[in-house]
């Protein structure tokens, strides 16, 4: 697993209060990991802070699963 993937997973575990075993690539933040709309916004903000990037709203809308977050950040993180 890449460093980025590891960091993404630990942010998700911390913010959503879930177990590491639940955080697989297909897991949806809202359907599988118990996030509501505010949790999702907070997650995106944490990714922005951790990876020092700005994620535009129209792209943030497409980040709904753990795998989508990892892929986006691997492509866009500085």
């Amino acid at each position: 697993m890449s460093d980025i993937a590891q960091k993404v997973k630990s942010i998700i575990i911390d913010k959503l209060g879930v177990e590491e075993s639940e955080v697989n690539a297909e897991a949806s933040f809202t359907n599988d990991l118990g996030a509501d709309s505010l949790d999702t916004v907070e997650l995106i903000m944490e990714f922005e802070k951790e990876f020092n990037i700005s994620i535009p709203d129209d792209q943030a809308e497409n980040i709904g699963t753990v795998g989508q977050a990892i892929t986006y950040l691997e492509e866009n993180a500085k």
């Binding site: 505010l38 916004v41 907070e42 903000m45 922005e48 802070k49």
Partner: peptide, 9 residues
């Protein structure tokens, strides 16, 4: 502005 979405509630 980088306000947490839980700030207001």
């Amino acid at each position: 502005p980088k306000y947490n979405p839980f700030f207001i509630p």
